[in-house]
Design a protein around this nucleic acid. Structure first.
Lengths: 205, 205
DNA sequence: ACCAATGTGGTAGTCACTCTCACCACGGTA
DNA sequence: TACCGTGGTGAGAGTGACTACCACATTGGT
C-alpha cells in the first residue's frame, strides 16, 4: 500500500494548529493583541501554552501572513525580462494582492476574510509593526531568488535587493493606508498608486 | 523663572546615560547582544537595572541610532523643489550619511567610531533587524513633515510617504551590505548605488 | 501485540519590562 | 544656616514571553 492518507496524525496536528490560530486572531481582534496572553489563546483553543509554542515559535507568528512569498516569486519569475526591475516587481506585487484579496469584490470566502483580518491586525497593531516590516525580508529574498540574481554576480544581487526592498516598502505604505481606511479602498489599486508615487507613473497600469 | 543653567543635576543625568549606553555597546560587541542581559549592563555601568530602563525604554534602544532624523529632514527641506521626490530624498540620505560618517576617511573621532559601532551592531544583530527597520518609520515621518506634505492634501502625504519609505528601504539594503563588508566600502557611495539601482541611474551623482 | 516516533502536558526557570514605595542629593527659598 | 520640594535613584515583587527537561499517551508500522 502506498501511504496515501495524510496520516491522520498530521491531520490532527494541522487541525489544532488551525484552531489555535483562529482563536488567537479572534481574541486579538476582540481584546487587543497586547491584552491577550498566550495562555489565554491556549485556554481558548483547549490546549496548553506549550502546544502553542510548538506550532508558532513566537506570539507574533500567530498573526503573520506568509502566503505572499511563493505567489510573488512566481509572478516575478514569469514577468518579461525586458522590463525594468521595479516595474517587474511592482506588477507582481499588484497582481498578487489582487489574487489574495479575491480579485474583484464579492466572493469573500471565510478563509479570505480570515486572511484579511490577520493582515489588518498585523498592520494596525503597533507591537507588530516591526515584525511585519521584518517579514518583508523573506519576501525580498524570495524575489531575489526568483529572479535568479542570487549566485554569480554579487552586485546584481545587491541591486535586485535594493529594488525589491524599495518596492516592498512602497507597498507597505499602501497597506498602512488600507488598514487606516478600514478596507474601504481596493488594496491592489492602492499598491499601484504607491508604486507610481515612488517610481514614476509607469508602474501600475 | 526659566532655569537657564545646565543645573549640574542634568549633567549627572546625561553622564550616567552616556555611561550606560557606552557599557552596553561595549558588552554587546564583546559578548553579543542576546548573551548580554540588562542586568549585566547595569552592573557594568554601576547602576541598578531600574536606572537603565529610566533612560532607555527598551533594551533595543540602547543601540538605536537616532541622529539621522533632524539631519535628513534639514537636507530634504533645503533641496530644490523642482527635483522629483525620490531624487530629493535620496540626495538628502547620501549627504547625511556622508556627514555622519565623517565625510572622507581619516578623522575618526571616538564619538564617530562609537556611532558606527552602534549602527553596525544594529544591522548585524538579527534580533535588532526588525527594530532597525521600524526606526525608519520615524525617519519617514520626519521627511514627510520636512516636505510640508503633512496637512492639507492627504494624497500628497501618501505619495511622499511611499517615496520616502522606498528610499529608506533602498538605503537599508546598502547598510546591510556595508555591515557585511565590515565597513570596507564607503557607506555614502553604497547608498547612492542602491538608490540608483532602485530608481534609475540619476539619483546619486 | 510490540516498539518507536510524535504530539502533548507539567514544572521550573530566565529575562525583559512594570509598578510601587522609600531614599537622598540637589535646587531654590527664608 | 536651616528648610522643603523636586527629581534621580534603588529595592522588591510581579507579569508575561519564551525555553529546557522530563513524563505520558496516542499513532503508525512491524
Amino acid at each position: 500500500m502506498v501511504d496515501r492518507s495524510p496520516t491522520l496524525r498530521a491531520q490532527r496536528r494541522a487541525e489544532t494548529q488551525r484552531s489555535i490560530q483562529a482563536h488567537a486572531v479572534r481574541l486579538f481582534t476582540e481584546r487587543g493583541y497586547d491584552a491577550t496572553t498566550v495562555t489565554d489563546v491556549a485556554g481558548a483553543a483547549g490546549v496548553s501554552p506549550m502546544t502553542v509554542y510548538r506550532h508558532f515559535p513566537t506570539k507574533e507568528d500567530l498573526v503573520l501572513v506568509d502566503r505572499h512569498g511563493p505567489l510573488v516569486a512566481e509572478r516575478v519569475a514569469a514577468s518579461p525580462a525586458a522590463q525594468p526591475l521595479v516595474r517587474r516587481i511592482g506588477d507582481a506585487l499588484v497582481d498578487s494582492a489582487r489574487t489574495l484579496t479575491g480579485g474583484a469584490r464579492g466572493h469573500d470566502s471565510p478563509e479570505e476574510r480570515f486572511l484579511l483580518a490577520r493582515l489588518r491586525l498585523m498592520i494596525a497593531t503597533p507591537a507588530l509593526r516591526a515584525k511585519h516590516l521584518d517579514a518583508h525580508y523573506a519576501l525580498q529574498q524570495a524575489i531575489v531568488e526568483a529572479l535568479g540574481d542570487d549566485g554569480a554576480d554579487p552586485d546584481a544581487a545587491f541591486r535586485t535587493r535594493a529594488a525589491a526592498s524599495a518596492c516592498l516598502a512602497a507597498m507597505h505604505t499602501a497597506l498602512v493606508r488600507w488598514a487606516e481606511d478600514d478596507g474601504r479602498t481596493e488594496l491592489p489599486d492602492l499598491i499601484a498608486h504607491a508604486l507610481a508615487a515612488a517610481f514614476g507613473g509607469g508602474t501600475g497600469d
